[in-house]
């Protein structure tokens, strides 16, 4: 075989090997930059002054259960669940019609690292009309909507604080 062919093949092999590595790294990029940071509110109402800041700085919580945001919700319906106090403060979960379970159990949607929470503490789900409902699942220390302890499944008003142990969550648009 001629020298030239072999040299070309030698360099060609290195090229394709590195091409594979580079393509693989490109695939990884989508995982590295897979979190989406959306500035809400500001874009829609550019002229309005920002009177309030979010109570806690958003933490880089890599949560699997997030989604692309519920764009198909009706108007006035909450689109996300925000943890406003507690160790998970800043976490948001997009509401897409799925049941959100809260508790210390590892398969909960929001895993609470809180001594006052039960392993399956509460769940939040939409009823048939798309109204979001919070229900206590027989927890030891109770779930509080505003100041009242929940006894039955209760609809959640927009922005009302739901307290579980040290964690406070609320639904927002």
């Amino acid at each position: 075989m001629s020298e030239l062919t072999l040299t070309v093949m030698r360099l060609g092999f290195l090229a394709v090997l590195w091409l594979f590595v580079i393509v693989a790294v490109q695939v990884i990029r989508s995982d590295l930059f897979g979190t989406r940071v959306t500035q809400r509110g500001a874009a829609r109402r550019g002229g309005e002054p920002r009177t309030q800041r979010q109570s806690a700085p958003p933490q880089q919580q890599r949560r699997q259960e997030g989604g692309r945001g519920g764009n198909r919700q009706r108007r006035g319906a909450p689109t996300k669940l925000v943890v406003s106090e507690g160790t998970l403060a800043g976490t948001t979960v997009a509401l897409q019609g799925q049941t959100i379970s809260l508790g210390r159990a590892h398969d909960s949607t929001i895993v609470l690292d809180d001594d006052y929470a039960s392993s399956r503490h509460a769940r939040i789900y939409p009823d048939r009309d798309g109204q979001w409902i919070v229900e206590d699942l027989g927890s030891t220390n109770g779930t509080y909507l505003d100041r009242t302890r929940l006894t039955t499944a209760t609809p959640i008003p927009l922005g009302a604080p739901i307290r579980i142990g040290k964690t406070v969550i609320e639904l927002r648009k």
Partner: peptide
């Protein structure tokens, strides 16, 4: 929340 600037961080 409609006035606040919230930063949503979620994964695709």
């Amino acid at each position: 929340s409609s006035i606040t600037t919230t930063t949503t961080i979620g994964t695709f």
